[in-house]
Write a protein that binds this DNA or RNA. Structure first.
Lengths: 352, 352
DNA sequence: TTGTACGCGTTATCAG
DNA sequence: CTGATAACGCGTACAA
């Protein structure tokens, strides 16, 4: 533990920068000829430090390649300036967009996102949550509202602001930003029915235990039931290699079981695009012979002919607003809404 | 600062759990009737603690809702068990897949990923890098090899293992996993030429300053030059709302300027799909009249008729291998290759 | 505007 | 197998 600190002169340090570890604030202070507190204040920005001193500190820091140790800062200040974000899957494009919507406002406000992939199982989620909480985040943004009881307990015990996103059909722990998945699916189904479709099949997400998808299916069933139509043409998508493939296979299966189908409603746009392509491959005209719709308004939905009719979900805006809610709370503002319903938008294109 | 700790009896704590903050290891120790060190050892797993003691500790921890403070652990142990990951864009699907490939092995080995969106500019990158380094990660995995000199300096000064990914055309700082973007583009171009295409247009990524795309363009130019063909039909994709839209607009522009084009090679599959759709919309038969190809093998490439011919890049495997390299180094293994070329795979489908 | 003393919650070290 | 003590690097509170 003696290392260079004990033996190295300031000159040596200056020449070689660091030999065996990180420069500490004390090193910067010594080189700049001030106390640590002055360096600390210079970095925090708020404290009043003369310009001359500030410049000397900046130079010393640059010479030493000093990067403040945030763990020490957190331990001392009891604030981490870290926001935890749990996400069911990093490769879900819409979630990634929400994440980006989150990241920008937080970064500007000086917070760093700590992203935890919480998977789709209770164990994974609990592990992810306990790990991120170990970093003592100042707040938590959850993408999705599915939480196993243990994770929910742990999060509540953390006594930090929490924003849940993407589904307003469930009661939430604290704050929330999103929309009603059930209503979105219901409206789309009503649109199909209003367009004269009667025999409508539904292709669900392969893991329908996910709340978000349970609500969508529920919305579909509600609307079909209300219209007095058959609501049993429901299929869990298979295990194809991609969402597109699963939609394609699902549509194939559905069309074989129910040749008279005049619409296929998919729980996500990836499935929808796959289903659309499958219909076209079979020579079924879309939307003449059969309608196909999805949910999500993925980029491809606008491009694939004849355009996939879908529901736009404002994924980026969900992130932005969630960050806004969190930042306001962190600044001590406890007034204002705790739940923001951003709604959704039926996007009618050629496919239905 | 007096708070509940001073006044609350153990019973009170047990009943109400925590009233005003996190339980600390000292609280767990007291409740379990052991010293902090024993608790610490119990959590670290390696230290020898009797089963009875371990059970009492587990019970106390559960009662108090104890979650170890990782910042304190890091400060004390000088190891964070955090791996920094820089990524140019969270919403780039292939990068997200690499991230997932990274996350699993690291999680299993007890490391948490700290993901920093480093954007596409030098300032953003420097800020991102300095923030993550502030958390004193035990290692850094960079997605992409583009680094501004300042960021590169900062990373080198950190003296931690570094794995760069996705591009082996550049010299790297330490370790690397990926493939040659230049060679991938070159091979695809050669394939088109071998198929009889002579007038080949290239649609580049809109920010060709990104190294990865510079190399791809270079590969295209190399192959065209070697074949003695025109290599000036190169277009930067425009600013459409999505990669698909940019590819579509790019193709439209190209086809208007160069009506005799018999192939369009796009720097990414998103552009490729857009270009393919645009060709079809114009009634040009693909691949009869014109060939279209991309790079990346996105999911949609396999689905869109007639199938987009492309280059598969093993995005997930890049992540997995990068994690493996890093973990081996963290375990002190300095033998073995420092650079892994995972290559690429020409995937021939209907479009070319 | 700048400096001093202390504590944040954990682990390393050494002793039992 | 368990415990006492001293760091780890920084910010808060207060003093100058």
């Amino acid at each position: 533990m003696a290392g260079w600190r004990a033996e190295g002169s300031d000159i040596t340090k200056r020449m070689t920068k660091r030999i065996g570890g990180w420069a500490r604030m004390a090193d910067v202070a010594k080189l700049a000829g001030v106390s640590m507190m002055t360096v600390s204040r210079a970095y925090q920005g708020n404290g009043r430090v003369s310009d001359a001193t500030r410049a000397r500190i900046a130079e010393a820091a640059a010479t030493l390649g000093y990067v403040p140790n945030l763990a020490a800062a957190q331990l001392s200040s009891q604030r981490s300036r870290v926001i935890a974000a749990t996400i069911p899957s990093l490769s879900h494009s819409q979630f990634a967009i929400t994440l980006q919507g989150l990241a920008d406002p937080f970064r500007e406000a000086g917070y760093q996102l700590l992203i935890a992939d919480c998977g789709y199982s209770a164990e994974e989620e609990l592990r992810a949550v306990s790990t991120v909480l170990g970093h003592r985040p100042d707040g938590l943004v959850a993408i999705g509202v599915d939480h196993c009881p243990a994770a929910r307990d742990m999060i509540c015990n953390a006594r930090i602001p929490v924003v849940e996103t993407w589904d307003l059909d469930q009661p939430v722990m604290d704050m929330a930003v999103g929309f009603s998945n059930r209503l979105a699916a219901c409206r789309m189904t009503e649109y199909l029915i209003a367009g004269g479709r009667r025999s409508i099949g539904y292709i669900d997400f392969p893991a329908p235990v996910v709340r978000r998808f349970m609500e969508r299916r529920r919305g579909f069933l509600d609307a079909m039931g209300a219209a007095g139509l058959r609501s049993d043409i429901v299929l869990d998508a298979g295990q194809g290699p991609s969402g597109y493939a699963r939609g394609r296979e699902g549509a194939a299966h559905l069309l074989e079981c129910e040749p008279d189908l005049d619409a296929i409603f998919c729980a996500t746009d990836a499935h929808g695009v796959g289903a659309l392509l499958e219909c076209q491959r079979r020579g079924l005209s879309v939307p003449g012979r059969i309608a196909v719709t999805g949910i999500g308004d993925f980029d491809i939905a606008a491009e694939i002919p004849p355009g996939l009719t879908t529901v736009r979900l404002h994924a980026r805006e969900i992130g932005r607003q969630a960050a806004g809610l969190m930042l306001r709370r962190l600044e001590g503002d406890t007034a204002g809404d705790k739940v923001l319903d951003l709604g959704f938008e039926l996007v009618v294109r050629g496919s239905a």
